[in-house]
Design a protein around this nucleic acid. Structure first.
Lengths: 247, 247
DNA sequence: GACTCGCATTGATACAGATCAAACCATACG
DNA sequence: CGTATGGTTTGATCTGTATCAATGCGAGTC
């Protein structure tokens, strides 16, 4: 059982709390970014009835690899990591999810990765059964899910290239530009300032490197005056440098 | 323009030839494995009208990265590789497609990888426009595409773990067991004999290694009596050894 | 049979990134 | 304030895999 379990009494679980009141799709800041962008305003009421806001503390495990899928959700605030762990403790992050990202595209019975809160997180939660029914009734909603899934697949292939064929320096450059692009989509404009809420170890496990190599590479880039390390992330000084590193 | 271009006159292109007559879904050997498994026998006639068999020679490029998607297809015989190439020539294979595998899950406008025939290949070709229309009319067919796409996504995540966190020996073991499992699905039973129609360079580019490391690792396994190299692939002597290498 | 041609294998060496170890530096807390 | 604590940085060294360079070998061809 986890925080997304439908049967769980409100507030009965450490690390999360429900805010049943207050969801209002009209006010949703991430709607244009999310799966809900496929819906007409007239359809908001129907999906609103299926949804519940849930909050998680920093470091909470939202779902555990191989848990049953009881609910699916959109991140409305905060950042999570998607984690696969090997028996001996080696980790590979398959991605980060930012506000607007939907988790549970697959409609399958069990999760294939853990989802862990990097910052305090708010999600808009949908019960699996209700959403499955909704999908059956609204083919254009299924089409939207399918488009999102195949887009994810294309990004996964990009990441395979990164993991299999790029150097540490190229991996870091690609990572920083990826995160920059994703913040830009959320904020509506690109900035040279890139918040990095995830720690060095998470970046390492996402890029297939060690924490030391991540640290050294970022600090080399700083010494080369390509970026500045700031308390919450980095500021890029020379975008061209990073773009030229992406082959 | 490529071999799958709808407007292309029959036989006008090197490396492929149409066999317009002869498709018969009732006789299709890969149907139970393919996207068509979602269809009722009564629906076969409708999809049969949209499909054409096309053959490609060994080494033919079936589609090129960034080509427009004019047609989608199911592999009915032979093996292809899915290739991403960097500007400087580094390659990453994102997968191999075997008989029964569907290519074009994404329904997007352009391909994000090249598709190249490793052996002589036969495909069952569907025009994109016709298939899109079909999808609109048959939500259960879209659901089948979506399930296949999310399954692919899960496999892509497995492959990220392989590329980011496994050693050369573990990568090879995982690769051999993957190919074994896929042949077993096609043939109906698992065998210790694993045909490997792809060359060492393809294996290397799939696993994020060099051809030398692939060759050395396989030959080490042979010297350790865990497998035997045979003309068309390998024969596993000790399945346990390979399974224990998959963490 | 001799000669390509396109892989695959093997050997010697180099190096990018891992590993091991220690120091650093915020932040939290008694 | 001093002192844990958890993450980050830096340094020294090691090593798995890449790189460079031959050599081997089977299939096709003249």
């Amino acid at each position: 059982m986890n925080c997304l379990d439908e049967a769980r009494p409100l507030g009965a679980h450490a690390g999360c709390s429900h805010h049943v009141a207050g969801e209002d799709c009209r006010l949703c800041l991430v709607r244009p970014l999310s799966v809900c962008a496929a819906l007409e305003p007239a359809e908001w009421a129907s999906i609103e009835k299926m949804s519940t806001d849930v909050r998680f503390e920093e470091r909470a495990t939202i779902v555990h690899e191989s848990d049953d899928v009881i609910a699916l959700f959109t991140i409305t605030a905060g950042v999570v990591r998607l984690v696969r762990t090997l028996h001996d403790g080696r980790r590979q992050l398959t991605g980060f999810a930012l506000p607007g990202d939907f988790l549970g595209l697959s409609l399958e019975r069990t999760w294939t990765f853990s989802i862990e809160a990097i910052t305090p997180v708010t999600v808009c939660r949908f019960g699996r059964a209700a959403l499955m029914e909704y999908v059956d009734q609204k083919p254009h909603f299924l089409m939207r899910l399918h488009e999102m899934a195949t887009h994810e697949l294309s990004l996964a292939q990009d990441h395979m290239v990164l993991l299999g064929r790029l150097t540490a320096e190229e991996k870091l450059a690609a990572f920083l530009l990826e995160i920059r692009r994703r913040w830009a989509r959320i904020e509506g404009h690109a900035s040279h300032h890139i918040p990095l809420p995830m720690g060095r170890q998470d970046i390492a496990d996402y890029l297939g490197l060690t924490i030391e190599t991540v640290s050294r590479t970022i600090n080399q880039m700083q010494r080369a005056h390509q970026l500045v390390i700031v308390p919450d992330g980095v500021r890029l000084l020379n975008i061209d440098y990073f773009e030229q590193l992406c082959p």
